[in-house]
Simulated scan of single mutants.
Amino acid sequence: MEIEIIKAIVLGIVEGITEWLPISSTGHMILVDEFIKMKVTPEFLEMFLVVIQLGAILAVVVIYWRRLIPTSKKTWIMWVKIIVACVPAAVVGLLLDDVLNAWFYNYQTVAIMLILFGILFIVIENRNKSAVPKVNSIDDLTYKQALIIGVFQLIAAVFPGTSRSGATILGGLLIGVSRTAAAEFTFFLAIPVMFGASLLKLVKFGMHFTGEESMLLLNGMVVAFLVSMAAIKFLMSYIKKHDFKVFGWYRIVLGVIVLGYFGVKIFL
């Protein structure tokens, strides 16, 4: 049991870091699972890898509590924009969740999307090098711009390895949103999206846990929360002085590693 809890803690650490940095939590989870396979049922593992995100969501709520409480007209408008951006991914997720998992949840898709979006980050940041952002805060986002960012989130929902945060940040940069505003909107978008995805997985799993399963899930969520607190603060501090190109290069390297590792594994 102790070994399995350690594995859950490691996965919680990976989730807490990779959920918010634009480097794909799925890509990392696939690799980590190869080396520290949890001795649980496939159904529980599928649910666990999604539901530990609830810990990561709680970190956003704690850090941005005052911004998120709908006590003013400005905050209510922000939440409407968030809902607008969530619609594309929510509709497709509810209708096609199992189908998309069957088609695209594989190392080839993950690796290709890691590399593709890594290249896009580098290209777009180079293009934006001397550009002045048109939108510097979430308050300045139009509903149309929010929907465009939501379409990028849909891409991440369909193709594992894209990275939800990576896709939405990239979408924001493409339409002239500042790095800080794009990152914050990405964090806020995660709240309804990840709550919805977690609820869907819990319902499909059946809400029936053994004592060991409950301990594993709780440990993963708590660790994901603590690590997410640090990851979010790091990212917001980092992008005040730097661009996202380092994450682009990291994604490319990780994508090549994923392709190489599983490619070699097939032939061995």
Rank of each mutant, 00 (worst) to 15 (best):
V61F: 15
P42K: 01
I119N: 06
V132F: 04
S178V: 07
G172Y: 01
D139R: 04
P88D: 09
A230T: 10
I149R: 01
G255Q: 07
K204E: 15
S24T: 11
A197H: 07
I112D: 07
V60Q: 11
W20I: 03
Q53G: 05
I257G: 04
G263N: 03
T41S: 15
Y250Q: 03
A181H: 14
V177Q: 02
Y261D: 09
L54F: 12
K134G: 13
P88K: 01
V32H: 03
A85F: 09
G220S: 15
L235V: 10
E46W: 02
V84Q: 13
V135N: 08
L259F: 15
D97G: 00
S137N: 15
L199F: 15
V62H: 11
Y105S: 10
E2N: 14
T109V: 08
E43I: 01
I191S: 10
W65E: 01
L45C: 06
R164I: 05
F121K: 01
E4A: 07
S72W: 03
F225A: 00
F247Q: 11
L49V: 03
V158D: 06
G248N: 08
E34Y: 01
I3N: 14
G55L: 05
G118S: 10
A156F: 02
M113C: 12
L235A: 00
L218M: 08
L94S: 09
F117P: 03
C86G: 14
E19W: 09
F48G: 13
G55T: 07
G176K: 07
M221Q: 11
A59E: 10
S72L: 02
L116K: 05
V91H: 07
L259G: 04
K240M: 07
V61L: 13
L259P: 00
Y238I: 00
Y64T: 11
F117S: 07
I232P: 09
F152I: 08
A224M: 13
L45S: 15
V151A: 00
P88R: 04
G12Q: 04
F152E: 05
V203Q: 14
I252H: 13
D140T: 04
F48Y: 15
G206V: 00
L170S: 06
F121W: 09
L259R: 02
G166C: 09
L58E: 12
A85S: 15
P70T: 06
A56M: 08
G248H: 05
Q153G: 15
V32N: 09
K245I: 02
S237F: 04
W20R: 04
K7Q: 14
T75I: 13
G161V: 00
E4Q: 15
K204R: 13
P42N: 07
F187R: 11
I148G: 02
R66C: 01
L218W: 11
E46S: 06
L120D: 03
I149F: 03
T71P: 10
K245Q: 12
L268I: 10
T180G: 12
G16Y: 09
G220P: 08
V91Y: 08
L235T: 11
L58G: 13
I232F: 04
Y238S: 00
Q108C: 05
F187V: 03
I155R: 02
G176Q: 09
T18N: 07
I3S: 05
A56I: 08
V222E: 08
M194G: 07
N219Q: 06
L68S: 10
G220Q: 11
V222P: 10
